[in-house]
Design a protein around this nucleic acid. Structure first.
Lengths: 359, 359
DNA sequence: TCGCAATTGTGAATCGTTTCATGAAATTAG
DNA sequence: CTAATTTCATGAAACGATTCACAATTGCGA
C-alpha cells in the first residue's frame, strides 16, 4: 500500500478514550464537556483526522456539491462563467463538479445522469441540447436558455443589450446599420439580442439589415454578405452589431481585407465583454454581460435552503463598454439601467414589438 | 418535500422480487440468471433507479473523482487546461472537482484539505503557494512546478521553447534581441524559458538583453525599459521574446505608442499558444504549449491503478507557430522535436550552460 | 441524606452499496 | 438413483458519520 489509510472517527474515539458520538459532536461544533473536547481535539490532531464527506453525504443525503455544465472553458465567456460560479459556490461552502459538454448534446444529458448518481445538491447548466431532459429530483438552474416555468433561467438582459447596441450606433453617428448573427437555432435568450436591436432601430427610425445563420455555417458567409453590400469602395453600413465578440473579431479581419478601416469607416459593437487574457482591456466595443452577477444568482438559487425563490426568468442588466472598434474609445460606459425603456417605445415600435412577441 | 426521494437498490429488489445482492450484480454487470436479470432491469427502468455514488464511494473508498486546482479559468491558458483535463478525465470515467484558487496561496491549501475530505482519488494542481503542503495519502500531480522527486511534475519543454524562440528570431533576421519576463519569483518550470532563450542566443552568438520583474510589478516598467533603449526613433532591438502571450499583447501596445511597427520594425514571439476565443487564430507568433498532451499525461498518472509510472519531471515538446507579430506569417510551424539539440551546443554555450545548471 | 431534574456522554441503528459465506438447486459422474 | 460437484441467488456484515433513546453523572432543594 503506497498511500496509508485515513483514520476514522472510531480511531479518534479510541485514541481519545471517548465515545463515537462525542467525537461527532466535537467535529460538528456541538457543546461538549471541556475536558472531552480537549482530549478529542488532541486525538484529531495526532491522527490527522479528516471527516469523510462520502459517509456524511450518505447519511445526510446532502453533499454540498453542485454540477456545472458548460460547453468549453477554453472560450473566455464560459471560462469566466466557470470561474465566477466556482467562486460564488466556494463562498457558500459548496464544491463544484465541472462538466464540459464540448457542445455535444449527448454529453450534456450524460452529465445530468452522472450528477444525479453523484447526488449533487443542484445542477447549473448552460446547455444546447434541444431535447434535454432536466431532472425533477434535483434543483436545476439554466443559464441563457429558457425551458419552462419550472426551471429558473438566468441570463443577461439580452433584449436591452441589443437595443443598447442600436442606440449606441445611432449616437455614434451611424446612418445605416446591420446585425450579424451566428448562433444556435435554439430558442434561447441570446436570440433576443436581435429583437432588442430591431427595437432600437425602430425607435430611432434608422434603416437596418439583419443577416443570420445557424451554428454550423462557416463565418465566410458574412464575408459574402458584406461583399454584396460593397460598392465602389464603400460599404452600405457604417455600423454593425455583431451578436458576439468573437464575431466582431472575425468581421474586423474581413473588413480589413476589403480595405475598410475600423472604426473610421465602419464601427463595430459586439456582445459578451470578452477581455484579453481575462484581466483587462476589452477585445472590442461591446455589451458586457454581468458574469459575476449571473454566477451569484445561480449559486444563490441552488444553495437556498428554503426553495422559496423560484423565479422563472431573471434578466440582469448589461453595460456598454467602448473598446477599439467604435469612435468613442476612451469615453465612459453606459449601463442598461440608464435606458428609460418605456418612454422610448414609439407607437410603431410598440406595434412591431408586439408582433414579435406574439411569434 | 419538493423533490422526491430517489429509489434505492432495496426498492428495486422488492419491486423485482429478488435479493439485494442480485440487483447489485446486475448493476455491476456481473453474471446473473437470465430471468433474474430481466426482472431486475425492468424494475430499474420502472423506478428510474440510479446508483448512489456516495454509498459506493463509502464502501469501496474509491470515488472516481479528481480535484483540479488552477488559478483562474478566465485566463485562456488555465481555461483550456481545465477543459482538456476535464476531457481526459471524462474519457477515463472520472469526475472533476474544479478548484479555482484565484492565485490565493491560502485557498490552494484549503482546496487540498477539501479534496482530502472528499476522498478524491487524486489531485492535479497548478499552484503558486511556496509553502504548499502536498498530501501524502493521495496521488498528486503538479503542473509547471517541480516540488521534489516524490511529486510528478508535468510541463512543457520550457527550456527548448525558449531556445526555439531565440532560434526563430535569428532565423527571422534579428540582430539584437531581448527577453521580457514578468512572472512568479518561484522556481518553477516556466522560468526555464529564460535559460533556453539565453542558450539559443549563445549558440548563435547574437547579443541579447534580459529584463525580468516579479509578479506584482506593473507592466509599465517594460515601457520604461523599452524607452531606455529607444534612440532617434529606433529601438535597440529588432526582436523580442516575451515569456507569455499576454506580455506580447501589452508590449505591442507600447511599441505602437512609440511609433514602432510590428513586425516590420520589431518582431515579437510569445509563449503559451493562446487562441482568440479558444478556437483558432493565435493571438501572436508564439511557442505553443501542448495543453491536450499535458492534460492526458496528468490524467493518466492519476488514474493508473498500478502506481507504477512515477516520473519526476515530464517535459512535453512545444511548437513554434507564426502569428501576426513576426515576418513569417503564413509559413509553417516548427516543432521542438526537430531541433537537434546537442549538435547545436557550441563550446562556449556548453560552458555557460553548465554554469547555469550548477546554479 | 434522599430524590428529582438537568445535563451530558454513550453506542446501537441507520444511510445505500458491495462482498462473501451460506445453502439451495441444478448438473454431472458413477 | 445416489453422490459429488458446480452454479448461483441470498442476505448479513461492513464502509464511516450522524442521530437519538438511554444511561450516567451532577446539582440542588427539602
Amino acid at each position: 500500500m503506497q498511500y496509508k489509510k485515513a483514520p476514522t472517527m472510531k480511531d479518534v474515539a479510541a485514541e481519545a478514550g471517548v465515545a463515537l458520538g462525542t467525537v461527532s459532536k466535537v467535529v460538528n461544533g456541538k457543546p461538549v464537556g471541556e475536558e472531552y473536547e480537549k482530549k478529542v481535539r488532541e486525538a484529531i490532531k495526532k491522527l490527522g483526522y479528516q471527516v469523510n464527506s462520502y459517509a456524511q453525504g450518505l447519511k445526510a443525503s446532502k453533499t454540498y456539491t453542485v454540477a456545472v455544465i458548460v460547453p468549453n472553458t477554453s472560450h473566455p465567456y464560459y471560462g469566466s462563467l466557470a470561474f465566477y460560479l466556482n467562486k460564488s459556490l466556494y463562498e457558500r461552502n459548496y464544491r463544484m463538479l465541472l462538466c464540459c459538454s464540448d457542445f455535444d448534446p449527448g454529453r450534456e444529458q450524460e452529465y445530468i445522469e452522472m450528477a444525479r448518481q453523484n447526488k449533487v445538491d443542484g445542477i447549473i447548466g448552460l446547455t444546447y441540447n434541444p431535447d434535454l431532459v432536466v431532472p425533477d429530483e434535483v434543483p436545476f438552474v439554466s443559464i441563457d436558455r429558457y425551458f419552462d416555468a419550472s426551471v429558473p433561467c438566468i441570463a443577461s438582459d439580452n433584449f436591452l443589450g441589443g437595443q443598447l447596441a442600436a442606440e449606441k450606433l445611432v449616437e455614434l453617428g451611424c446612418s445605416r446599420v446591420a446585425l450579424l448573427r451566428q448562433g444556435s437555432i435554439l430558442k434561447n435568450e441570446p436570440n433576443k439580442r436581435m429583437a432588442g436591436f430591431e427595437n432600437g432601430c425602430l425607435i430611432h427610425d434608422i434603416p437596418y439589415d439583419i443577416k443570420m445563420v445557424g451554428d454550423g455555417v462557416p463565418v465566410s458567409v458574412f464575408g459574402d454578405f458584406l461583399m454584396d453590400h460593397y460598392h465602389d469602395g464603400k460599404l452600405d453600413y457604417d455600423g454593425i452589431f455583431c451578436v458576439t465578440d468573437k464575431l466582431v473579431y472575425e468581421v474586423r479581419f474581413m473588413l480589413k481585407e476589403m480595405g475598410l478601416r475600423v472604426p473610421e469607416d465602419v464601427q463595430l459593437i459586439g456582445f459578451d465583454g470578452i477581455r484579453h487574457f481575462g484581466y483587462k482591456d476589452y477585445v472590442c466595443s461591446t455589451i458586457v454581460q454581468p458574469v459575476p452577477e449571473i454566477a451569484e444568482m445561480c449559486a444563490e438559487l441552488i444553495v437556498q435552503e428554503s426553495r422559496r425563490l423560484q423565479p422563472q426568468l431573471v434578466c440582469l442588466p448589461v453595460t456598454y463598454m467602448p473598446g477599439g472598434t467604435t469612435k468613442d474609445c476612451g469615453t465612459h460606459c453606459h449601463h442598461s439601467n440608464d435606458l428609460t425603456f418605456d418612454s422610448y417605445l414609439s407607437p410603431e415600435a410598440r406595434d412591431k414589438l408586439s408582433k414579435m412577441q406574439g411569434d
